[in-house]
């Protein structure tokens, strides 16, 4: 009776009309040692399925919270910025002449510069003669053209 049942189930199995429960019955039947000789050929099939289901995934999955990483970087950046602001001191105003030299020194320097400027101007005044020279050369040039 049992065997007849199994034969029927096998037939149904290959037509893909068995239910999961019926397939489980077949698996169980073939996992036992007392398989009818004429059905033995099917045993590897069902035993393979049972065996295949036992394979496990053993690799570790690195679940790094990546998004948090970026968030904390920005937090750190802001912290560094705040610390920077806290210790920040405005640069001192530029040093003036009055800080480094006494008024007398400045006065004498001014005098010296004025003297230099005056003599320099004298020199430039002399150069006005060159203007006259230019005028006469231009006259020649226009004539030649």
């Amino acid at each position: 009776m049992e065997l007849h049942n199994i034969e029927k189930l096998i037939e149904k199995y290959f037509e893909a009309t068995t239910t999961v429960a019926e397939e489980e019955k077949l698996r169980k039947y073939f996992s036992e040692d007392e398989v009818a000789p004429h059905l033995e050929q099917h045993a590897p099939l069902f035993n393979y399925f049972t065996k295949a289901k036992e394979e496990r995934f053993t690799k570790q999955v690195p679940l790094k919270p990546r998004r948090n990483y970026l968030k904390w970087v920005s937090v750190a950046a802001i912290a560094v910025f705040m610390v920077g602001l806290y210790f920040y001191q405005p640069t001192p105003p530029p040093v003036t002449l009055a800080d480094e030299y006494t008024p007398e020194e400045i006065e004498s320097a001014k005098e010296a510069l004025a003297l230099l400027a005056m003599n320099f101007n004298k020199g430039t005044e002399q150069l006005y003669y060159l203007d006259e020279f230019e005028k006469t050369t231009n006259k020649f040039l226009t004539k030649n053209n």
Binding site: Y13, F14, E15, A16, T17, Q41, H42, P44, L45
Partner: peptide, 17 residues
């Protein structure tokens, strides 16, 4: 699905034989 399954099972059976 049933057709594919039936074919697959029968193919495996034949090749196994």
């Amino acid at each position: 699905i049933r057709v594919a399954l039936s074919r697959a099972r029968k193919t495996v059976r034949e090749k196994l034989m």
